[in-house]
């Protein structure tokens, strides 16, 4: 068993699960979207992205998916911070729905990433 691969798979999967956890629920209801889950999703996605810098292990497409996810999550975080800190109305349903939809895009990228991981693992076994 390769510890590096375990760590890699763990972070790729964790990034997707945290993202999913934040995403599920009514899109306009702030109570079912925990900001700490978003924070953790950003951090874990950043770690997953850095882990994918190793080009020999996985293709450039893999890195691209992570970059997309990270970008979307950062955009979601920015909207959240804007709503809480700057906006006069506070966190309105409009804000929270755009945060969640952005994280939904990131979720798609994360799913692609996981699919790539599974495909690679499967093709690795066949060899």
């Amino acid at each position: 068993m390769n510890l590096e691969k375990v760590v890699f798979g763990f972070f790729v999967l964790l990034a997707a699960t945290l993202n999913f956890g934040f995403f599920v629920g009514d899109i306009a209801d702030a109570r079912v979207h925990n900001v700490w889950e978003l924070f953790l999703a950003v951090v874990v996605n950043a770690i997953a992205t850095v882990l994918k810098f190793d080009r020999t292990q996985l293709g450039a497409v893999h890195l691209a998916t992570s970059l997309v996810a990270l970008l979307q999550l950062l955009a979601a975080t920015s909207v959240w911070i804007w709503a809480v800190q700057v906006s006069a109305d506070g966190l309105t349903p409009t804000h929270i729905s755009s945060v969640v939809s952005l994280s939904g895009g990131a979720l798609l990228a994360n799913i692609v990433s996981v699919v790539l991981l599974v495909v690679e693992t499967a093709s690795f076994r066949r060899r």
Binding site: F39, V43, I47, L51
Partner: peptide, 24 residues
């Protein structure tokens, strides 16, 4: 560029981890 990125993995991970830990 990829050479740099590969070698910078560990430092990046350290910075991300400590930063998010201290922020939280």
């Amino acid at each position: 560029v990829f050479l740099v990125m590969r070698r910078m993995r560990a430092p990046f991970l350290v910075v991300i981890t400590t930063f998010s830990f201290c922020t939280a």
